[in-house]
Design a protein around this nucleic acid. Structure first.
Lengths: 210, 210
DNA sequence: GCCAAACTTTTACCGAGTCAAACTTTAGGC
DNA sequence: GCCTAAAGTTTGACTCGGTAAAAGTTTGGC
């Protein structure tokens, strides 16, 4: 029952192979146009095995979610004393952007990814569900800290809104054809704008139409 | 091509019949345990007809969404001059609660509804998708007013977070068995707490763990 | 080398959703 | 009141995602 036996390595290799083959096909032809049976065949494996590793078809494409979730929760839960969740997440977003991480939203190499994502309703639905999971995870951390269930849920929701709005703003611009470097530079201000709204409120929003 | 011919009335009657039959079955036995074929048979109609009126199975249960969306958008778009979107929506939520509207979250007659909703992942996913549609609709209104795409999206997201958090808080309590009248009374404060957070920010959130 | 556990494959199945063609009902001109 | 055309419904066959169970194959421990 060793964690690094031949068995375990083979499993991870198979999992990675399936994921790679699937992503390749999705980016070539789109999510809905590729069937699971086809992926299985292309990966030299049976359909059941695919579902063994990835419970839903959408997870074949959005398989980094678990890592992202864990990282975000860790940023909030393990923040230094005296640092608010807002400040911790704000810094984290800046760091992601600076390091060119795909999840910063503004990074090359991924226009294909966003095309696939945005052109499949099923994939978008799962994406939103994952955002909800992030909000729930934040809420859990805050409840443990404060004991206030409703306020925790609200704050978790507001923070998640900031993170996802920042992300999808960049994604939208890149899909619209904006230059990746320009988007990337301007994301710094976008991140601050988002977290400022959460931190200080929407006081100055125009009161009426016109 | 009259809007009120026999044809149109029959269509609406059929639609309502299917929806009623479906909701009844769902509440009796749960969403996943009822098949579309079964609903069709119970309504004396073919499976294709069901999908004619309701493109997805989930829409059979969540068929009030279009109305809810239109109402919320109208509240924001047609608010009186000098009233902020936050104030308009805050008042609207109070009004829904006072009038005993199901969408206020705290109303009797609907524990069955929430049980069905919360016990089906597919239904919850669609529910979240509808919340996203609300946020998108708000954003569209704000973009038309202000021209600032990112800020509009952010504010729309924050407001939607308030609305949905208020709702799901009530739903959670009622599902947990709390007395409906108690929940209802306390919702007034919950609504204000939610919109206060959006309006004035999360300044005073505890900075660190402990 | 052998046994047992873990992993994979096979086969069969179910339910959601689509498509096209046949069929029935209604609207509206004559 | 008919007759036709369009709108709505049904039928039947099909695709695809996903599950279940059982048989087959590989791996680890002894």
């Amino acid at each position: 029952m060793a964690d690094h036996g031949l068995r375990e390595r083979k499993k991870q290799a198979t999992r990675q192979l399936i994921s790679n083959v699937a992503s390749g096909l999705f980016i070539q032809r789109g999510f809905e146009e590729v069937t699971v049976a086809e992926i299985a065949e292309a990966a030299g494996v049976s359909k059941m095995t695919v579902f063994n590793y990835f419970p839903r078809k959408e997870d074949l494409f959005l398989d980094r979610h678990a890592d992202r979730l864990a990282e975000l929760v860790s940023v909030v839960r393990s923040r230094p004393a005296g640092v608010s969740p807002i400040a911790a997440l704000r810094e984290h977003q800046h760091a992601l952007l600076a390091s060119g991480h795909p999840l910063s939203g503004a990074i090359a190499g991924g226009p294909g990814f966003w095309w696939v994502l945005s052109s499949s309703p099923a994939l978008m639905a799962r994406w939103y569900e994952q955002e909800r999971e992030i909000a729930d995870a934040f809420a859990e951390v805050f409840v443990a800290e404060t004991g206030d269930a409703f306020r925790s849920r609200m704050v978790a929701g507001l923070l998640t809104t900031a993170i996802t709005s920042v992300f999808s703003h960049a994604m939208g611009r890149i899909l619209a054809g904006d230059d990746v470097e320009v988007v990337r530079r301007e994301q710094v201000g976008v991140i601050d704008q988002a977290f400022n709204l959460v931190e200080h409120g929407v006081n100055d929003f125009p009161a009426a139409t016109g």
